[in-house]
């Protein structure tokens, strides 16, 4: 049997919203350590890796390792029925071909239960090497979302150039071109508003902005986003999921012809 309970069910709903545009169905790997998921988008350009550690759940029980094929599209629809402050329990009974989502209101006056049929999915797993990135940019996730949305108006690709002083996002297309430059914050009241850059080497990389915009669907999970970059290496775009884990998106760069 598998059972995991989250006092703040909305966190799980945000995780699903963050994934479902990039991948519509995926296999969840459940073990004693927690829940993990790895999936590529249908074009094999981007990869997402999710970790939710067992100690982040209010209660967690996993008697044996399980691979659960789940439609994220359907799960998202079911989670929309959850109240904002509801507690969420995810359960898979032994020998069952369904996942049960139970939602309980904070005053314990309302209790809803939904079942979703599990799917048999082919999953391709990729080994992600440990990388010492040349540059890590930390910035407010709302700012990153806004920049990606704005860059998409100008072109299909965005070039991210990072130096020790700042980071520049630039795009050009048929309508024209533009760029936004953010300087490293020197003095901020709130850490979540800061832009910080750890740099060993300056980098300039170009990415499909459509994918960056899909990654930004996970921005409500975290005030800050980490962008880790090295030349000729996929971008790693990371949103923390509270203290319990993270969503990491990897995006293959565009290469000059």
């Amino acid at each position: 049997m598998f059972e995991a309970r989250l006092a703040q069910g909305s966190i799980f709903a945000k995780v699903i919203e963050g994934l479902r545009e990039l991948v519509t169905e995926a296999t969840w790997e459940c073990s004693g350590n927690g829940i993990t998921l790895q999936a590529m988008d249908s074009s094999h350009v981007a990869l997402v890796s999710l970790v939710l550690r067992s100690d982040g759940f209010e209660t967690y029980r996993c008697d044996r390792n399980m691979s659960l094929g789940i439609s994220l599209t359907s799960m998202s629809k079911v989670l929309k029925m959850m109240g904002k402050d509801d507690t969420l329990t995810i359960r898979v009974n032994d020998d069952s071909d369904a996942i049960v989502l139970s939602m309980e209101s904070q005053n314990q006056e309302e209790f809803a239960e939904y079942e979703l049929r599990l799917m048999d999915l082919d999953s391709e797993h990729l080994g992600i090497p440990d990388t010492d990135y040349s540059c890590v940019v930390k910035m407010p996730s709302t700012k990153f979302s806004r920049i990606c949305r704005d860059m998409a108006i100008l072109g299909d690709s965005v070039t991210i150039c990072s130096t020790k002083d700042g980071v520049k996002f630039g795009a050009k297309g048929d309508v024209g071109q533009g760029s936004i430059r953010l300087n490293q914050s020197t003095n901020v009241d709130k850490e979540e508003d800061a832009v910080s850059i750890e740099l060993r080497e300056a980098v300039a990389l170009t990415f499909a902005v459509r994918y960056l915009n899909m990654f930004c669907k996970a921005a409500p999970l975290s005030n800050q986003v980490n962008l880790s970059m090295s030349e000729d290496t996929p971008l790693m775009c990371e949103f923390k999921v509270g203290d319990m884990g993270h969503i990491r998106f990897y995006l293959a760069p565009k290469i000059e012809d």
Partner: peptide, 14 residues
């Protein structure tokens, strides 16, 4: 002009 590379080019299948 840019060519979009695939993610599997950087990460190995296992």
């Amino acid at each position: 002009y840019y060519f979009q590379s695939e993610i599997a080019y950087y990460f190995l299948y296992y």
